[in-house]
Design a binder for these strands. Sequence first.
DNA 1: CCCACATGAGACACCAATGTCTCATTCGAT
DNA 2: ATCGAATGAGACATTGGTGTCTCATGTGGG
Lengths: 182, 182
Amino acid sequence: MTVDREQVLRTAAALLTRRATATMDEVARSAGIGRATLHRHFAGRDALIKALEELGLKELETALDDARLDEGPADEALRRLIASVEPSAGLLAFLLTENQLFEGDVYDGWNRTDARISALFRRGQEEGVFRIDLSHAWLTDAFYGLISAGAWTVHDGRAAPKDFPYMIAELLLGGARRSVKQ
Amino acid sequence: MTVDREQVLRTAAALLTRRATATMDEVARSAGIGRATLHRHFAGRDALIKALEELGLKELETALDDARLDEGPADEALRRLIASVEPSAGLLAFLLTENQLFEGDVYDGWNRTDARISALFRRGQEEGVFRIDLSHAWLTDAFYGLISAGAWTVHDGRAAPKDFPYMIAELLLGGARRSVKQ
DNA sequence: CCCACATGAGACACCAATGTCTCATTCGAT
DNA sequence: ATCGAATGAGACATTGGTGTCTCATGTGGG
């Protein structure tokens, strides 16, 4: 009987990721509950988005924890991160565009995750694993961008989900150019 | 007296890129015209978005032409493309998210540009310049993703506009990993 | 100089979505 | 079996944005 808040959030995430303009009613229906019930659990659309943001943030932080970013070579840590972030990629892609739209009052929890990812790139640069002519700020943004792009590529069926980690890690680490001496 | 349609479109693009939910009234104000006048030139919001889409498409096609994608090594052609697409990056980033939101009825003009970019990557693969373990579909999506990410990085002040071509081309071509044998 | 035409401002109806409320129903714990 | 709590359905007012219209203004071309 009682609504599973987590379940509702995941369903809403799946729908909103596909269509960000979905109605509260559509969100409710897709979760198999009534609109009134949805309102009982989330005060309004803003509250729903914020809850989604907290969910995505929590998932990203869990992925960051699981990846053990400060262990081993930085490039291997980055691979672990990409792999563990994969299940959340769709939600993160949605939240990324959502945040870009609402400039200013962005949930500042993202600063923490940004800092951790940025720190990984900085460590890699200091240890000579990552190139230093690309700022860690740009590498961080590119990381998010490729995660989003990969999420859409998989979502639209242009790549299989299982290829997600490989195609992102390889492009982000090695680039598109074929290495001549290899 | 007469409104410069092109000018209005560019102003609208600049505003909507920053805040996609901007009102028709805000769009009009930012262009320095009245809402009624805006409606006289663009039947409605949909028409405005569509006009923006056509503008972005036109600019991208111009950039594709200017880059002469079928001349010289594919990686150099890609560099030319990134450089010539830079002025349109913000608009393209906006249209990209806009299109992802409205699934289905996307302006099919993008298929042409997708095909041209994809063809560049395929040519590069056939000529041994680009690696073949990453599909040209993914490379194309990644190209768009990095263009968008770069546009936001520049927009938010985390990189200078002049660095745009370098940081994107270098990451897309060479990746983040520091080449050991170099 | 004058007239035609585009514009700006504002009024207006309309619509879609939101948020709130009520009430009957149903589920689940006791 | 019973009672309380949560739900679903629907009604309702409200709101913000949209699209249309009118009218006064002013500018530019002839």
